[in-house]
């Protein structure tokens, strides 16, 4: 998808901009659907992945796997995440196979600023939600 490489270049430049206080790197990942990996400075362990389809831009990050949940706590954590879901600005939780994810989706017509804003918010939400779910995790 041509649009994605354009987005990648523009995002990469935005990520390098000094003074935005939120530097990040953009790495394209090849595949049947091309994905961008966003690596934020000092938060390299929890990257964000961006994919673009006809309708939406999906920004997603992996939180933890099912087997990281303390045994017997599955129901509790699921409930806790479901409750927390609505209070989380711009992001939501989901489950893909055995992987808990956090994501935000935007219209394909979003501006570069909207997307960078989404990345910032999502990254903060990632840290906060792992912190909030800490008691249920191994």
């Amino acid at each position: 998808m041509n649009e994605l490489s354009t987005l990648a270049n523009r995002l990469a430049e935005k990520g390098k901009e000094s003074g935005n206080g939120f530097p990040f790197e953009v790495n394209p990942i090849p595949g049947e659907v091309e994905v961008l990996q966003i690596v934020i400075e000092d938060r390299e362990e929890l990257p964000i992945f961006i994919s673009v389809s006809e309708e939406q831009i999906l920004c997603m990050s992996y939180l933890f796997k099912q087997d990281e949940i303390k045994s017997g706590k599955e129901n509790e954590i699921n409930k806790a995440m479901l409750i927390a879901n609505i209070s989380m600005p711009l992001s939501a939780f989901s489950l893909i196979d055995d992987q808990y994810v956090i994501y935000g989706s935007l219209s394909v017509n979003s501006s570069l600023d909207d997307i960078t804003h989404e990345i910032e918010i999502l990254s903060d939400n990632i840290l906060e939600s792992i912190e909030a779910m800490r008691e249920y995790l191994n």
């Binding site: 990942i29 090849p30 595949g31 049947e32 659907v33 091309e34 994905v35 990996q37 992945f49 994919s51 389809s53 999906l58 997603m60 992996y62 893909i96 196979d97 992987q99």
Partner: peptide
Amino acid sequence: SVQKATAAI
């Protein structure tokens, strides 16, 4: 698309 993106990720 999500499935395919997830595979790549």
